[in-house]
Design a protein around this nucleic acid. Sequence first.
DNA 1: GTGAAAGCGCTAACAG
DNA 2: CTGTTAGCGCTTTCAC
Lengths: 338, 338
Amino acid sequence: MVGIEDIARDIGMSASTVSRALRDLPAVSEKTKEIVRAAADRLGYVRSAAASGLVTGRTMAISLVVPSVSLWFYSQVIEGVDSQLREADYDMALVNLGGVGVERQRAFRRSLLRHRGDAVLALCLDFSDEEREELRQTRLPVIVVGTPVSGLRFVGIDEVAAGAQATQHLIDLGHRDILHITGGAEERLGLSLRVPQGRRWGYEQALKAAGITPNPARVVEGRFSMEYSRTAIDTLIESGETMPTAIFAASDEMAFGAILSLNHHGLDVPGDVSVIGIDDHEMSSSFYLTTLAQRPFDQGVHGAQILLDELCGKPAVRTSRVLPVHLVTRGSTAPVTR
Amino acid sequence: MVGIEDIARDIGMSASTVSRALRDLPAVSEKTKEIVRAAADRLGYVRSAAASGLVTGRTMAISLVVPSVSLWFYSQVIEGVDSQLREADYDMALVNLGGVGVERQRAFRRSLLRHRGDAVLALCLDFSDEEREELRQTRLPVIVVGTPVSGLRFVGIDEVAAGAQATQHLIDLGHRDILHITGGAEERLGLSLRVPQGRRWGYEQALKAAGITPNPARVVEGRFSMEYSRTAIDTLIESGETMPTAIFAASDEMAFGAILSLNHHGLDVPGDVSVIGIDDHEMSSSFYLTTLAQRPFDQGVHGAQILLDELCGKPAVRTSRVLPVHLVTRGSTAPVTR
DNA sequence: GTGAAAGCGCTAACAG
DNA sequence: CTGTTAGCGCTTTCAC
């Protein structure tokens, strides 16, 4: 392993000069820097993150805490965060909570408190009081993407407004019997319930505003899963009940499930039933799905940027940031015919 | 920040004893360990990864190099790797290459050579000679998941056999005019082309073995994308050409695109066209897709385990590991009718 | 079993 | 502009 001293010896200078040159500090002559860089390159030097981290107290990495990496929303945020980190030459420590319970606690404490990163970006997690307290004690800058958490900054969308806007789109098309496929009850992931609750709340608000009384029987559970959602609609259709004229799914994936179920039972979308989702998943265009687009990639970008700015010494942004959503009209919604 | 010395002072012992107790070394009395652990807990001690890493030369983390996190296969492998790391109390440094070019080189060197992890698990990447050389110089244990790379161990499936088996399933059902949707030409990701090439090769092998001459016109590009694949089939259908009686897509996502396109044009699956994929994506059941299942989660588990064992001092596994695939029959394939 | 001392490779004052 | 001197918090000989 070649260290800073090896370079120093090689070029006949002191270690501190080498250290400074390598970090491109102003107090070193350009000529010396050249020499140092050349030697470092030639010798194949790589800075020890452990050593420099030990003395500076900075890891040059940020911890990303996620409930899972295999859901579209999360993977998009991760990509967004990553794009910013790369630019700032920061590394990413991925902390996958992998569900609730003891395992979660261990994962949580393990990497966060071990100071693997200089800041923490959490995704869609509702922290327990204990976790929040532990986080605070680390004194690390924290931001949450996707869900407002009391006492912490967040970047995300206004879930209630999104739910209302999606529902309103259907109402504007004349629909009055609108089924809502909600997400949640997904214990496996231990993620926040605020998202599905907000979207549902928006749905009910929009209905009421249009003079329609929300009917609890018109809300079914989809668990943010395509499969679960498809099954739910299968059940509904096979029950022989009157079908709603429109469906608002709290996520695109659940909307896909609904569309597949409807088609499978010979129902046309949007001829028989209109369907709208939230997300603008990359598969949505293939399903011709009308949806309320959010940009999780951008949410990741913003979250990371706020953290990075703070680590650079810029004044901390204390306020949350609500990003806009916009309606993407494709073919899955149409004026009511029944 | 509470360190090892604080604990030592608190309980009136030396730092070395505390250090040993915390690591559960045998040379400390059980009673002392209890006391130390209690104090550590009470004081809220967390070991500094930088400090212990500096002296031991180990980071207790593994670098995971991926071309992207937003494709199903990768996210599954990541989850698998993560499950093993968590058990071993290792952290994960995620290195997202994010495409080809300069950026890729920077990302590559940055985190790997900076010794963020004690071993490297790479996903589906074809390393350039230069990269391979740099990797070797780090002397870190390396393993590749998903694609054989010359000179490196790998964990994955036999792509050729998988392609052949999927095709054979269609042949067994009497199909002779089988379209193949291939993946690749996805420069954005800079991933290995061996996977799609292997599957295509298997497809051609199976055809030949059945006395069918492979027709290059019956291979279309799907870029491992649902959208791209759907468009490709749209084009085929709208061209008015004779339709094949079956389609073998090199990934489930591309099979989904094909199914949507077929349905959209009033063609029944499997009535008019049979469709088979490779993967067993979690959405496949919703599409009633027959597919050749692989378990990327398990691939991640195996890859991580091999690395972890090696880091524990167990003899290094030098051989690659080929995992089995199996046919999952759902409703998208049927005997030929035309 | 436990303690004292010597670093791991780097950065950060402080001189010059 | 460059060199010297201390550590960062932990592990690891080597004594006792």
